[in-house]
């Protein structure tokens, strides 16, 4: 990258890193490396974050995240974690109906599996 682009990205850096060629290049390149890694981490971190939210939401209605998602998978509900967490926050009634649906399915399942109860 040419030095003009480097200085453009180095705006607001601490000390000589914002106006000294060699230091600015070092800092900007390190920053871009972190950017590269973070784009991968973002997917992981957000998934964890969504799961925490879904867990908190479903525990209000007496189901753990584990059981909740087992019920949904068993009944082939394919709503992803991003949407489920969004529903847990902004649509409490719809989320409750999903938890109730999951509870209903779980009552027909054998122990901690996806297979139905033996008759």
């Amino acid at each position: 990258m040419n030095i003009d682009k480097i200085f453009k990205l180095a705006k607001g850096f601490y000390g000589r890193s914002k106006n000294c060629k060699s230091l600015a290049r070092e800092r900007v390149e390190k920053g871009l490396e972190y950017n590269y890694v973070s784009r991968k981490l973002k997917k992981r971190d957000f998934r964890q974050f969504w799961i925490q939210r879904i867990n908190a939401g479903s525990r209000i209605h007496g189901l753990t995240y584990n059981d909740f998602s087992r019920g949904l998978t068993a009944s082939d509900v394919q709503i992803n974690r991003k949407i489920l967490s969004e529903l847990a926050v902004s649509e409490p009634y719809s989320f409750k109906s999903l938890v109730d649906h999951s509870k209903n399915i779980l009552s027909h399942l054998h122990k901690n599996t996806y297979s139905p109860k033996e008759i």
Binding site: V77, S94, S97
Partner: peptide, 15 residues
């Protein structure tokens, strides 16, 4: 459409 929510009901799709 995987899910529809209205004021009175929620329709859950499988899938």
């Amino acid at each position: 459409v995987l899910l529809v929510g209205t004021k009175s009901q929620t329709m859950i799709g499988t899938p």
